[in-house]
């Protein structure tokens, strides 16, 4: 079994391109198992891009290209024999805006298991209940699982999406600004949930909100923007990893002035 401090995912010299344009350059960091790692940084610094390269969601964008090594349990995710479909099952994702399918709550959660070939009603029932309980949504929806997922409130929808993600039993959950579309109370509920989930899952969260990173994460990666004037008036911008450390350390004694200015809220 894994011990605390073991690495679930390692990024080594990762560059991401969109077409000819460099989006993120030379990112190297190690994500620890069963810990919450937060990605912070100003808009356009590429934190979401890096997150999406971890479960190969970038494959879906025409022209996107990832260079360097992204290793999951010792296996390079971009090796030719790796099937992105399997990668995404084991590294799940929760998105910025809650995106339940226009189906019932039950069918939303059962979607993944059904893909994997689970047909038995009893097994599906068990998975749905377990996942909804895992996402602390069960008590609120147990009476009407047939209701459309779209009929839930924003915070409930996001927890439904989390339940849907854990139903396929991933090992890592990537969260791309999961609370940015939620009100403070719903945000609180999702943050509480993360703290419980991290006992079983490795979590990587992209957030725009430094307080949130401080509240929930164990490690924080700060991304920043590099600029270069290619021709006068036309500027190239790309993201780099500015600093990566334990959250308490990064926020109390940042290494660089840029990080310090960002966490003090001077730009962003």
């Amino acid at each position: 079994m894994t011990q605390n401090g073991a690495y679930a995912i390692q990024l080594k010299n990762v560059d991401v391109f969109y077409g000819p344009k460099l989006a993120v350059s030379d990112v190297s960091l190690n994500i620890q198992t069963r810990r919450i790692t937060a990605f912070i940084g100003p808009s356009g610094c590429g934190k979401s891009t890096v997150l999406r390269s971890i479960n190969r969601m970038n494959d879906l964008i025409p022209g996107a290209r990832v260079q360097g090594d992204v290793t999951f349990q010792g296996q390079n995710l971009y090796a030719p024999e790796v099937d992105p479909v399997e990668v995404r099952r084991r590294i799940g994702m929760v998105f910025q805006k809650p995106n339940p399918f226009p189906k019932s709550i039950y069918d939303n959660v059962a979607y993944g298991p059904r893909l994997l070939g689970v047909r038995s009603k009893a097994v599906l029932d068990e998975i749905v209940e377990k996942s909804l309980k895992g996402a602390y949504l069960w008590d609120e929806v147990r009476s009407d699982l047939k209701k459309s997922g779209l009929a839930l409130s924003g915070g409930q929808q996001q927890r439904l999406c989390i339940a849907r993600t854990i139903a396929v039993e991933p090992e890592v959950i990537l969260m791309d600004e999961p609370c940015s579309a939620l009100d403070p109370i719903a945000t609180q509920a999702v943050e509480d949930l993360m703290k419980i989930l991290v006992k079983q899952y490795t979590i990587v969260i992209v957030t725009h909100n430094m307080q949130q990173a401080q509240r929930v994460s164990d490690f924080t990666a700060f991304f920043s923007i590099r600029k270069q004037e290619e021709t006068p008036g036309k500027e190239n911008r790309w993201g780099v990893l500015g600093e990566f450390a334990e959250t308490t350390e990064l926020f109390s004694s940042p290494n660089s002035e840029e990080t310090e200015r960002y966490i003090r809220g001077e730009f962003g």
Binding site: M57, L60, R88, N99, F101, G112, L116, T165
Partner: peptide
Amino acid sequence: VPRSLREASYGLGATRFE
């Protein structure tokens, strides 16, 4: 159909056809 629904499905390990 919003892109976010497609992403949700891919994120759960669905193939394109699924």
